[in-house]
Nucleic acid binder design. Structure first.
Lengths: 339, 339
DNA sequence: TCGAAAATTGTAATCGTTTACATATTTTTT
DNA sequence: AAAAAATATGTAAACGATTACAATTTTCGA
C-alpha cells in the first residue's frame, strides 16, 4: 500500500505538497501538480481516511436514524438522502431504532463518537419532548416528526391540515361515523388525529380515535380494526394515520368480509402502489416522500455550512387522492349502513 | 473533550493502562480497572474512533451495496443486516447502485478507502461475471445474485427451481400459453427464466420470455405487459420474475381492464403484503427475505473471523403460495381463452 | 536595480489512540 | 533462598494524514 510519503518521494516533492494537491484548495504550481498526480497514479495511491479524519476532524459522514427502514415512508426518504449524499461525497450510516429510546440514544451516542458531519433523525416521542438541536454536538435535522415549538430544523407534512382535509372529504361524501386509527408512538399520528378531531367537531360529529400501539407494523392496526369491526353498529368509515396502519385496516376489512366503500369506507395516508391496486382503490393523502428526504438532507447540508443560522422548517402539504374507497354515498348523509 | 491522557492522569495510571482496561482483552489489576473506570465516568470520556481506527486498522464498519433500497427485497434484507450488525456493534454504510457499474465501482473503492470490515453486495451482471471475492481487499458476501461458479460466499434463492415450480403450478392448473417477464439487469431474473423455460419444455410448451430492462422499477414491467396485452391472442398467464415486475404486470392488467384469473392468470415472486390484498390474491413464490439478510451478515461475520476458510453458499428454497390469481381452470387444459 | 510583499514549497508538529518493548513486580520452580 | 518464569505496568514509537510555521522563491513597485 502506497502512503503519502511514497508519493512525495516518487514525485520529488514534500508530503505537504502532495496533501495540497489532493486537497485542491491551496495554490500549487502546475509542474508540481502534474508530478504529484502522476505519482498518485503510478502508485495507485489512495489516502487513508482514518488518518485524514484524525487530523482534519472531519468525517464526511452523516447518520440516518429512523424507526424502521421497512416503513415505506422511511424507505423512500432514505433513498433520497442517500442520493444527495452520494452527490456530495458523503457516506450514510443507517440506523433503525424500532421506536426504542434506548436504542435511539445509543445511536445518537454513536453519532458523536463517529464525529459525523450531521444527522437526520426521526425522533421518538420521548426524545422529541423538549428537543433542541443545540444540545447535540453535531448538526441535526428532524424528519417526519416535530412539534410546533421544537428548536430544530425539520421537514414535515402539515399533519393537522392533512388529517382535517381527509376527514372533511369523508364527511362531505356522506360518512359521519368515522373512526380514526392513529399510531401513538410518534408525534405524526397525534397531529393527524388532531386534524381529524377538529374536522369532526366542525361538523358537529363525535370523534372516535383509536390508538394503535406500534406504528411500525401493520399487524397492530389490523388487530385493532378487526376488534372494532366485530362490534355493532359498524362505523361508516375507517381512517388510518399512516400507510402501515392503513395496510392493517385493509387486511381487517378483508378478513371481516366487509367490502369498501359499501359496508365501510376506508382512507388513510401514503400513496403506496398497492392503494391503487386494491379495488376500487383507496383514498389517501399522498406525501411527497422523496421530496421530504431531499429537503431534509439539503437542510442538513445548509446547517453544516452555516451552523449558526436561524432554525428553519420545511412544511409540505399532502395531496388528497380520491379513490373508490370513499365514493360518495347515495343515501342521505348521516344514515348509517349498519344493521 | 476529555482525552485518554486526561483519564490516565485522573486515574493516576499510564495511558496504556487506560487503553488496556477499555479494550478488555489483556490483564489489568482490579484496582487499576476500578480507578480507570471511575475516571472514564467522571470525565465522560469517549474514545476517539478516528484515532483508534488509524492505529488499530480496524473500523467495525460494514458496507451494504444494493441496487435500490426501495426494492422491497433489499429493504427487508437491509433491515436484517442492520439488526445483526447492531448486535455486533458494527455500523452499516448504505449504498445504492441503481445497477450502474460505475456507481458500484465507486462504492467498492469507497469500501476499500473506508477500510471496512466487510461488504455485503448484490452485484450487477457486469461485476458478477468472473467475480472472485479474493480480488477485493476486504471480506465480501454476495446476496440475491450469484452464478454457479462464482468464487464467493453467497446467499441466494434456488432461482431455477423456483421458476420451474411456479411455471409447473400454472401448467398444472391449465395455463399453457404463459409469458415470463424477467429483469435482464440481474442474474436472478435470468435464472428464474431458466426454470420457466425448463418447465415449459418439460410439458412440450413453447416458452415466451419477455425481457424487462430495469428491475428497479415497476414501470418497465407495466409498459412491457401493457404492450403485450394489446396483441391477440391473449396469453393464458403472465409471470413476473420479481416483486417489482409483478407490480407492473398487475397494473397493466388493471389498465387493460383484464381480470385475473378469468381473462389472464398472474403469478410472480415475493409475498409482499399487497399480493394478498389484490383480489383474488396473487400466487407467488415467497422468499424468506429477512432470513436471507440474516444469513448474509452471519456469513460475513464468519468470513471476517476466518478469512481463509472455504467458500460457502447458502441456497434457500422459495415457498409457493397459491392464491386466486392462478385458480384451476375448469375448461380442458390447453384451450385458450383468447378470442 | 533593490527591497518589500506575495506566493510557493518544505519541515516538523500534531491529531488521539494502540501496542511493541522495556522495566518492575510477583509467582513458581528447584 | 535464589533463579527463572510469569505477570503487571509504563514509556515511547507507531498509525498516516493535515497544517502551522519557517524558508525560499517570485513578483512588483519605486
Amino acid at each position: 500500500m502506497a502512503r503519502i510519503k511514497d508519493v512525495a518521494k516518487q514525485a520529488g516533492v514534500s508530503v505537504a505538497s502532495v496533501s495540497r494537491v489532493l486537497a485542491g484548495h491551496s495554490k500549487v504550481s502546475e509542474s508540481i501538480r502534474q508530478r504529484v498526480l502522476g505519482a498518485v497514479h503510478d502508485l495507485s495511491y489512495r489516502p487513508d481516511l482514518a488518518a485524514r479524519r484524525l487530523r482534519s476532524r472531519q468525517t464526511d459522514t452523516i447518520g440516518l436514524i429512523v424507526s424502521d427502514i421497512r416503513n415505506p415512508f422511511f424507505t423512500e426518504v432514505s433513498r433520497a438522502v442517500e442520493d444527495v449524499s452520494y452527490q456530495h461525497h458523503l457516506r450514510v450510516i443507517l440506523c433503525n431504532t424500532d421506536e426504542d429510546v434506548e436504542k435511539e440514544n445509543l445511536y445518537l451516542d454513536l453519532m458523536r463518537d463517529e464525529n459525523v458531519s450531521g444527522v437526520i433523525l426521526s425522533p421518538t416521542l420521548t426524545t422529541l419532548a423538549g428537543f433542541r438541536a443545540r444540545d447535540y454536538p453535531f448538526p441535526m435535522v428532524l424528519v417526519d416528526r416535530c412539534d410546533r415549538d421544537t428548536a430544530a430544523d425539520a421537514v414535515i407534512l402539515d399533519n393537522v391540515d392533512a388529517g382535517y382535509r381527509l376527514t372533511t372529504h369523508l364527511i362531505d361524501n356522506g360518512y359521519r361515523r368515522n373512526i380514526f386509527f392513529y399510531g401513538t408512538t410518534s408525534a405524526t399520528g397525534r397531529q393527524r388525529r388532531e386534524g381529524y378531531v377538529a374536522a369532526m367537531a366542525a361538523h358537529g360529529l363525535e370523534a372516535h380515535a383509536e390508538p394503535v400501539r406500534s406504528t411500525a407494523t401493520a399487524e397492530h392496526g389490523r388487530a385493532a380494526a378487526y376488534e372494532r369491526l366485530r362490534r355493532r353498529p359498524l362505523p361508516d368509515a375507517l381512517v388510518a394515520s399512516s400507510g402501515l396502519i392503513l395496510l392493517g385496516l385493509t387486511e381487517a376489512l378483508r378478513e371481516s368480509k366487509l367490502r369498501f366503500p359499501d359496508a365501510v369506507a376506508l382512507a388513510g395516508f401514503d400513496d403506496l402502489p398497492w392503494t391503487r391496486l386494491v379495488e376500487p382503490g383507496i383514498t389517501v393523502i399522498s406525501q411527497p416522500l422523496y421530496e421530504i428526504g431531499r429537503a431534509a438532507i439539503e437542510l442538513l447540508l445548509q446547517r453544516i455550512a452555516k451552523p449558526d443560522q436561524a432554525v428553519r422548517r420545511v412544511v409540505l402539504r399532502g395531496e388528497l387522492i380520491e379513490r373508490g374507497s370513499t365514493a360518495k354515498r347515495n343515501g342521505s348523509a348521516g344514515v348509517s349502513v349498519a344493521a
